[in-house]
């Protein structure tokens, strides 16, 4: 018993001379600390990174209809640093609560097709300042800017960084336009 008690001694001594009273003895202090942690977690979720399930057929070759989770970077909030070709998470402007994931096809000043390429119409629109043009990868099954027009960048919540689940299909999302533009830029 003696060797064990000598091992435990520093802990026992600390417990005896602790300056902070133990947390569980002060329910109010525990509550305050819980509130602080929740607020910190909320800020991290809202302004840092978040993970969540993606559902629906509108992004089909890129994301399956269900059972897939994605990692979103909120550092791209309000479209900050978003480029054409990126996948963004946005608040659907015509619905009170729903959110969606679409691909950025045009940014302020760009000219974009109003309808699908195979619709026969080649009418174009210039994306107004502060807006972006979002279109799903699965054109026939996607409700996007072709239906509700340009989306204010203020409704963009973040950029999709990766597919995280199922784990064996983990995949960073690469901007398909980047490799070409980097060639032309250099």
């Amino acid at each position: 018993m003696a060797p064990f008690s000598s091992l435990l001694r520093p802990f026992l001594r600390r417990a005896q001379t602790a300056q902070q009273p133990s947390l569980l003895g002060h329910p109010f202090r525990l509550l305050l600390r819980t509130v602080k942690y929740f607020c910190f977690a909320h800020l991290f979720w809202e302004y840092g990174y978040s993970i969540g399930p993606a559902e629906g057929p509108s992004m089909l070759p890129t994301f399956e209809v269900s059972n897939e989770w994605i990692l979103i970077s909120k550092l791209y909030r309000h479209g900050r640093g978003v480029q054409v070709g990126d996948l963004v998470n946005y608040k659907i402007p015509i619905e009170p609560h729903a959110e969606g994931i679409k691909r950025v096809v045009g940014l302020p000043g760009d000219y974009v097709l109003i309808d699908s390429p195979d619709s026969g119409s080649d009418a174009m629109i210039q994306v107004p300042p502060g807006h972006c043009w979002l279109v799903g990868d699965n054109l026939p099954a996607s409700r996007d800017s072709r239906a509700f027009g340009p989306v204010p960048l203020a409704l963009v919540r973040g950029k999709v960084l990766a597919k995280t689940w199922p784990f064996y299909e983990f995949q960073w999302m690469r901007n398909p336009l980047k490799e070409y533009s980097s060639v032309s830029d250099s």
Binding site: P129, G130, A154
Partner: peptide, 8 residues
């Protein structure tokens, strides 16, 4: 509200 023409 956040203005539609400038998200900031």
């Amino acid at each position: 509200f956040r203005t539609p023409h400038d998200p900031n």
